[in-house]
Each structure stands twice: as C-alpha cells, then as structure tokens.
Simulated assay, not measured.
Amino acid sequence: MNRTTWLLLSFFILGVIAVGYVYFNREDALMRGLKAERNFAVKDVSRLQKIFIAQRDGETTLLEKKGPEWLYNGKYKARPNAMDNLLDAIQRVEIDHIPAKAAIKNIVNNLAGEGIKVELYESGEQPVKTYYIGSGTQDERGVYMIMDGFDQPFVCHIPGWEGNLRYRYNLRGDDWRDKTVFAEDPDNIQSVSIEYPKQKNRSFKLERKGGSSFDIRPFYKITPKLPLPYREGSAEAFLIGFESLVAEAFENETPAKDSVRQIVPFSVITVTNKQGKTTQAKLFPIFPESVMSLDPKTGQWVSSDGATVERYFVDHSSGDFMLIQDRVFRKVLRGYDFFYGR
C-alpha cells in the first residue's frame, strides 16, 4: 500500500471519528434537552432556599427559608400547611401525558395568558428550575405545564393525589401567612392574664413561681380571693391550651375593623414567656354589644338572648385583625374559679 493510499485511509478514518463524535454528542445533547424539558420535580426539596412565584396580573410571592422556617415576602412567617402542600407538589410533580398536537397551540396560549411562573432556587443566584403552570385539564386531574426555554407543554399531576395542583401554587396575600394567635411551649410560659372587662370577678392572673408552682390571683384588686383550695393540675392543663391556637382567617381588610376596635373587648388574653416576649389578643364577639355569660351546662359563652358565640374578631398584638372560632379557643377562655374547688 503506497503513501497516497495510507493518507486517504487515514483521512477517511479521521472523518468517521469526527462525524461519530459530532453525532453522538448531538444525540447526547438532545437527550439532555429532552430530559430537562420533562424534569419538573425537585427530589430533594430540603436544598431549596427560595421560591419565587409570579402571577400574570403582576402579583408576586417570595418564599425564603430562614433556618427551619419559611418567610413570606421577607416579613411574615409562612403558613406551615401551605408550605407543606407546595413543597410536596414541587417534589412529586410528574408528567401524566403529552397532549395531542392539535391542542398544543391553545395550551401554549393559555400558558402565556394565565400561566403562573415558578422559579426554584438552591444556594445560587440563578434558579435551578423555572417553569410555568397553566389551567387544569377538563377532568381537573392534571394541569398544563411547560419548562422555561422549551416549546413542548405537558399534562402534569401528583401521582396518587386527585386534584388540580395549580391551587398549591396559586395562593395570594394573607393566604400564605401563618395564622397562629398563640404558640408557646407550656413549660416556657411565665405568666398569663385573662381580663373580662364586663365580668371582673372572672378575670385572673397566673404566674409561674418555679417548676410546678403557680400564683393565681384575681386580675382586679377589688375582686376577693376565693376561699377554696387550689385544684391540683389545673394550671398545667390550662397552659397546655396555648401550644397551638390558630385563627380561621385574617380580616385585615374588613370595613368593620376600626369600629370594632373602639368597643370594649369581651376578653383580653396576655401571654408572656420566660424570655420576656409578650403576645396579646383582644377578643370581640361577632355580636359585640351583647352581655356575655358562661353556660354551666355546655361550658360555652353565650349572649344575653341565649345565642351561642361561634366566632370572635381578634385584635392581635402583631397588628393583625383576625377571625377565630370559639370551639378552638374555648379551652383557654377560663375564669378565675376554674383553678379552685374540689
């Protein structure tokens, strides 16, 4: 074999290698791209540090992880249940199927007009994933989604869960916020006072003196002390009620807020922990002009006309105006005599 033949053969071999290299790298890039456009889930959500959600009407939500908690818009503690649902969706979302080609144009238009943009961040300045969530399918079991930078939309769902996962991302304003009124470890409570301005004899102050020792006395000096023995364990049972007391809703936008705040409250609850942090809630029955009394048969507070109180407005020391349910807070709406007797 002469020199010319060797050179031609060498060029041919090199050409095959080059073509193969380009081809296989192209195929590899295509596979990576195919995987990227389908890979919506973040399997390890513990690595997420920030979630940014933008609505088409301009409203935005920023959720940032600070230690074990999430903050909403840099100011408020995020509602744990809302975050659990969101993170569950982020972790478990999967493609259910590829929509028919004939429907893709309408789906893309829907995503452009109604899509919620979601950016997921770990430690860096750039999001690890960005995708858009459109409307739900007709049977509400899936939702249209598309990865940022790609053209192919998909119908996605959470395996084993029936529902439209868009709702987990589509909360607005106060719906993201933690609705806790009181949340204190009973062993970390230093004192509690409950004032009933219209029932002074039921008002009291409870103060921890050390360990399981408590001083419980009337809130008002004019109220005589009860000549009865202390009921063992009553203080501990009462304090357990403050572990988790959550409002039904925020009512910061209600027109009645300012006028309600001018009324004498039915009750003022003040809790101070061992670190000196004080939390206060003023309770106003939904019918605030009624005279309240305790029904000894049911243990419920009732109005003078016999109607049962089901809800209260709450003026919270955080500045929020909230709505609470009597059935949730009844366990701490105790009177001075609760702690005494046989």
Rank of each mutant, 00 (worst) to 15 (best):
8 L>K: 07
14 L>K: 00
16 V>I: 15
19 V>K: 06
24 F>S: 04
30 L>G: 04
32 R>A: 14
33 G>Y: 02
42 V>A: 07
45 V>K: 07
57 D>Y: 01
58 G>V: 07
61 T>Q: 07
62 L>C: 01
63 L>H: 04
66 K>M: 14
74 G>Y: 07
74 G>H: 10
80 P>D: 11
84 D>L: 11
93 V>F: 03
102 A>I: 15
103 A>M: 12
106 N>L: 11
112 A>P: 02
121 Y>R: 11
124 G>C: 09
127 P>R: 04
133 I>A: 01
136 G>D: 14
143 V>R: 03
149 G>P: 12
156 C>A: 15
159 P>A: 10
162 E>P: 01
169 Y>R: 00
170 N>Q: 06
181 V>R: 09
185 D>T: 10
187 D>Y: 04
195 E>T: 08
195 E>A: 11
204 F>P: 15
204 F>G: 11
219 F>A: 10
223 T>N: 09
229 P>V: 10
230 Y>R: 09
231 R>K: 15
232 E>Y: 03
235 A>C: 12
242 F>Y: 15
251 E>A: 12
252 N>Y: 02
253 E>R: 04
257 K>I: 06
259 S>D: 13
265 P>W: 02
266 F>S: 07
270 T>N: 11
271 V>D: 08
272 T>E: 13
273 N>E: 10
276 G>P: 15
286 I>Y: 03
286 I>P: 02
298 T>N: 08
300 Q>E: 14
305 D>Y: 08
312 Y>F: 15
314 V>P: 14
316 H>W: 06
318 S>C: 05
319 G>K: 05
322 M>W: 02
331 K>L: 13
333 L>H: 09
334 R>C: 11
341 G>K: 09
